[in-house]
Each structure stands twice: as C-alpha cells, then as structure tokens.
C-alpha cells in the first residue's frame, strides 16, 4: 500500500515533466501513425485491386515487422536527413512498423466486401473510382480502423524505446529508471504509456463500432 502511495506521490510531484514527455510521446506516435495511414491505405488499396502487388507489398511490410526495433533504429542511423535528428529517426521507424497492420487491414477490408455488392456495382456502371469511394472504402472502413488501432497501440509501446536514441517520450523515464534501478521512475514512464495505449484502443474501437456498416 505504501509503495502505491509513493508512486502516486512521485507522479504528482513530477507531473510537469511527465506531461511534457507524454506530449512528446504523442507527437512521435501521432505523426508516425498519420504517415502510416497516408502511405498504408493507398498501398492496401493497390494490393487489393491488383493482386500482383499483394505479395510484394505485404511481404516487405512483413519483413520490416520482423526487424527488432533497436536494430531498426541502428539501420536507419546512417540515412541522410533522417539520421540527423533522433525524432525523425524514431518517427520513420515507428511509421515502418505501423505500415503492416494498416496495409493488411485495408487489403482485408476491401477484399471482404460482399462479391455480390461489388458485382452489382460494376454491373450498374460504376467506374472504378466510384466503386472504391462509394462502396468499397465505406464498407471496409471499420476493418481499416481496426488496423489503425493495432498500429497505434503497438506504436505507443514501441515509442518508449525511441528514448534509447534520444528521441524523448515516456521512454526517458523508463531508461532512466532502468539505469538507476528505480522502479518509481520506470512506472512514471510505464503508467502514462499504458494509459495512452488503453485510451487509444478504446477511442478508436468506439469509432470503429460507430462506423461499422450494418
């Protein structure tokens, strides 16, 4: 009980720095998710439309996913412009990790649209673009969002490791705590990160259900 109070106390005392690092954390996750969505959804659409692209696109995204995060940070370090600043590097790495769930769910969502609905749309004379924007994407939106949700939740966790290369975020506390063998410090990073992940999970999950076609 005492230790719980201590942690609470610690969190209160350091609320300013926690808030600052949380904002930094959100920035890393937010920008990388946005980039992953902007890149991943079109890639998912392309691989759903033209099956030749499915294997290479998902294959590459899959391979990226298997690279350990610390190693990926290392690999990206020599890349010009990107490697020059830690936050750029972290954002790129997080984006690459977030791509897979976004691409895969866009692909699955579009492919999962009832074939009868697609056939009816084509038979009625919808153009490819009309079919995509009026039928396929609206019907796939909840599946796509669930991919985004997975991407965000994973990113919130991964972004803590970005502190290892000096990109900031809640990982700062965790690494400091590890170095000083101080559990309170570790928790000061881990608790807000968990709260972030859970609220993103809940928030996007809610949106997903709202947008689910009947």
């Amino acid at each position: 009980m005492r230790s719980l109070m201590d942690i609470f106390h610690f969190l209160l005392q350091n609320h300013e720095e926690i808030l600052e690092l949380t904002v930094e954390h959100l920035w890393l996750v937010g920008i990388s998710t946005l980039l992953a969505v902007v890149i991943g959804i079109p890639l998912g659409i392309v691989s759903a439309r033209w099956p030749v692209w499915n294997r290479p696109v998902l294959g590459i995204a899959n391979i990226i996913q298997t690279v350990p995060s610390l190693a990926l940070f290392g690999f990206l370090l020599p890349v010009p412009w990107i490697g020059a600043r830690a936050d750029r590097l972290a954002i790129l790495a997080l984006t690459l990790y977030a791509l897979l769930p976004v691409i895969r769910n866009t692909y699955t969502g579009i492919r999962g649209v009832d074939p009868a609905v697609v056939e009816a749309g084509q038979g009625m004379g919808l153009t490819g673009t009309q079919l995509l924007f009026q039928v396929e994407l609206p019907l796939a939106v909840s599946v796509i969002l669930s991919g985004v949700r997975v991407a965000v939740v994973v990113s919130v966790g991964l972004a803590t490791i970005a502190a290892a290369i000096g990109a900031g975020g809640l990982g700062e506390f965790i690494f400091r705590g590890l170095a000083m063998v101080n559990n309170q410090l570790i928790l000061a990073g881990a608790i807000p990160a968990a709260v972030l992940a859970l609220s993103a999970d809940f928030g996007i999950g809610w949106l997903e259900r709202r947008l689910k076609p009947r």
């Binding site: 009832d114 009868a116 009816a120 749309g121 084509q122 038979g123 004379g125 009947r214």
Partner: peptide, 21 residues
C-alpha cells in the same frame, strides 16, 4: 464505352447485392 453500356442495362442478381450502407 463500357460504363455507358452498363448504365443503359439493368442488372439483377440472385444475391441482389444491395449496398448495405
């Protein structure tokens, strides 16, 4: 033009294929 052609032809299938949304 395939789009023009199709818009001039009504198409009804067994599974109906109404747009659920």
């Amino acid at each position: 033009d395939v789009i023009r052609l199709r818009r001039g032809i009504g198409y009804v299938i067994q599974d109906v294929g109404l747009f659920p949304h």
